[in-house]
Amino acid sequence: MEAFTTHTGIGVPLRRSNVDTDQIIPAEYLKRVTKSGFEDGLFAAWRTDETFILNDPSYAAGSVLVAGPDFGTGSSREHAVWALMNYGFRVVISSRFADIFRGNSSKAGLLAAQCSQDDVELLWKLLENEPGTSVTVDLESRTVTAGDLTAAFQVDDYARWRLLEGLDDISLTLRHEGDITAYESGRPAWKPATL
């Protein structure tokens, strides 16, 4: 995974709450067996509406999405994270993320930065008043800066460390393979097996 320290890019105000993963990428786009190419499915239904924010040329090259609360609810599809990243997003800011989406983001290298809803509102106003405004997200100091606005964001300490270091969870876990083997030797014999 690519390490994440700081990112600066165009902010995209998405004034919607409950952006579920079926909106981020509808199921018909989930049939690929790779991790790339999902940008065509990103917000596929909404993009057919010419007034949708990503159809505005000022925001089309955005890389910091600022969305309403309960972002990423619904399906566990990591394709939602891949679609955002394939399109060019590196950061999503929201006042509340669905658990599975947040977990998937940290595994895949997308920063899910949790700001207060008040700060999200301020960012929305700023980005709408001045389309194309750059937003800087600093994971080290956990701050978002845009124009005169500086806001703090929350991110889980462990997820932050892994993102900063660009570490792969599986290698970290396999350092403790002895513990896994020891645990396995103590499992009750009646636990079911599939083979």
């Binding site: 599809r77 394709h79 599975i100 977990g103 998937n104 595994k107």
Partner: peptide, 9 residues
Amino acid sequence: GIGTSEVEH
């Protein structure tokens, strides 16, 4: 439920 990275894990 888990995501695909966790499936691999």
